[in-house]
């Protein structure tokens, strides 16, 4: 009996940790602040932003560490995320997606893409007042789908260097689900940062 209770607590704790990982407080409170402003300057936009933010939160609450979703669901979610960031950053943020609908049919672990876009925003548009560009490419390969997320890098050195914890978490999850450690790769050049994930067709059973 006691063991079962203990187990339940552990599961609950794991779930809570998972949720906490999904919601970036900096993003959430800045978005709420934008909404607060829009209620005065543009109430229609405020409402739109509340809807988008709610959808984003609902999506992340619905997922668990083991859930699989279609890549197209993930892409839709990331577009909502970027649309919210664009309200905050305006013309400073530009993004584009390049994919075929077939490529998006594949199943992937949920919530792996949004943290990559959050990183891209943090290291590009948040660091410079000139325009930053985030590009996402989805290519079908013989074994699955290859996703590349590329962000421009500002000229001045960043005030904070990422700890890489976010990328490590995704790497670990991919390894658990696919049994391969080499699916996620990063490449940094002087003006560009690229993260590539190769999603295989099959997961470990």
């Amino acid at each position: 009996m006691l063991r079962e209770a203990e187990l339940k607590t552990l599961v609950k704790e794991a779930e809570l940790t998972w949720l906490k990982l999904q919601i970036n407080p900096h993003f959430l409170f800045n978005s709420l602040n934008s909404i607060s402003s829009l209620t005065i300057t543009a109430p229609d936009k405020a409402q739109e932003m509340i809807n988008r933010l709610s959808e984003l939160l609902r999506y992340s609450l619905k997922q668990s560490p083991n859930s699989m979703v279609s890549l197209s669901d993930e892409v839709e979610n990331c577009k909502k995320y970027l649309a919210i960031e664009q309200v905050r950053f305006g013309d400073r943020l530009k993004y584009n997606f390049d994919y075929s609908n077939e490529a998006l049919q594949i199943l992937v672990p949920s919530m792996v893409l949004q943290p990559l876009f959050e990183n891209a925003v943090k290291h590009s548009v948040a660091q410079t007042d000139s325009t930053s560009i985030i590009t996402a490419q989805f290519t079908q390969t013989s074994v699955g789908v290859c996703v590349s997320i590329i962000n421009s890098l500002p000229e001045t050195p960043a005030s904070s260097i990422g700890t890489g914890v976010g990328l490590e978490n995704i790497k670990r999850r991919l390894q658990l689900m696919y049994g391969t450690a080499t699916l996620l790769n990063v490449n940094k050049s002087i003006d560009k940062f690229t993260v590539t994930i190769e999603f295989p067709d099959k997961i470990l059973s």
Partner: peptide, 12 residues
């Protein structure tokens, strides 16, 4: 402040 909506709010 780098975000336009945040600046708007302060000015308001």
């Amino acid at each position: 402040e780098d975000e336009q909506p945040a600046r708007d709010l302060l000015k308001h």
